[in-house]
Amino acid sequence: MAKMTVITERCKGCGLCTAACPKKIVALQKEKRNKKGYFYAECTDQSACISCAMCATMCPDCAIVIEK
């Protein structure tokens, strides 16, 4: 089972990951902010994640860990 984890305190809400995901399951959520005040990204459907790590590859802050 693939798994995408966002290290929420490292995310700067830049959104580069959201455009990279081929499954369109990465988005900036609108409810919670991290300590810096950024709306951090999240995976909207872990079951659809294929652990291709394209989101993590686009992330400038190493804020995404991918497991498989």
Binding site: C14, S51, A53, P60
Partner: peptide, 20 residues
């Protein structure tokens, strides 16, 4: 499950000052 993508060791685990 194994980790397939994470921060490389030689990149220090600290937030950077770069803009979003």
């Amino acid at each position: 499950m194994a980790v397939v993508f994470e921060r490389p060791k030689s990149l220090i685990d600290v937030p950077t000052h770069y803009c979003p």
